[in-house]
Simulated assay, not measured.
Amino acid sequence: MPPIVDPANERLKDQWKCVNGHWLRCSFSKRLLASFMEGFKGEIDRESGRNTDLVEEVMLQYAGTAYVGVIEWWIKNGMPYPPRVIAKQVGALLGRTL
């Protein structure tokens, strides 16, 4: 699994608060999505047979956008849970998917 980006970082927190949603989606989210998708490539379970009929690109897009979406939701809603809680929750969900 790729390293967790720590959105609690004060500089990053300020960027999320100060810029409009368009920049957020077009710049930060795209880079974050690309990073996660690259990191998830080695995580897809092909050995159990449960993902054999699924296209890798679709799986990566699904998992990556879910991960980015949760991070965006978490920050936009004032980070209602500690970073470790979010990381554990998303990790468990991705483990069920990939």
Rank of each mutant, 00 (worst) to 15 (best):
V68Q: 03
G39R: 12
R11D: 14
I71E: 06
M79Q: 12
I44H: 07
G95A: 06
R11K: 13
K88T: 11
I86M: 11
T65G: 01
W16L: 01
G49H: 00
A66M: 15
H22K: 15
A34R: 10
G21P: 00
P3Y: 01
L12E: 06
G21Y: 00
I75L: 05
F40K: 00
K76V: 06
S48K: 12
G91R: 07
D45A: 03
K30S: 12
Q61D: 12
L24K: 13
P3C: 01
T65P: 02
A92E: 11
Y62T: 14
A34K: 13
A63F: 09
L94K: 10
A92I: 05
L24N: 06
K76Y: 12
R84E: 14
D14A: 15
T65C: 04
K88M: 13
R46A: 06
V5N: 10
E57F: 09
V90I: 09
F36L: 12
T65D: 09
L60V: 00
N51E: 07
S35P: 00
Q15D: 10
A87W: 05
Q15K: 08
L24V: 03
E43H: 06
Q61E: 14
I86Q: 08
Y67P: 00
M1Y: 05
G91I: 03
I86A: 06
F40A: 11
E43S: 12
T97Q: 11
P2C: 04
E57V: 11
A66H: 08
E57G: 05
T65L: 07
C26M: 14
T65V: 05
I44P: 02
M37G: 01
L32T: 09
P2F: 02
R96M: 14
N20F: 01
D45Q: 02
I71N: 04
P80R: 04
G95I: 01
G91T: 04
N77P: 01
D45M: 05
R84D: 13
G78Q: 08
N77D: 08
R31A: 14
H22W: 11
K13V: 04
K17L: 07
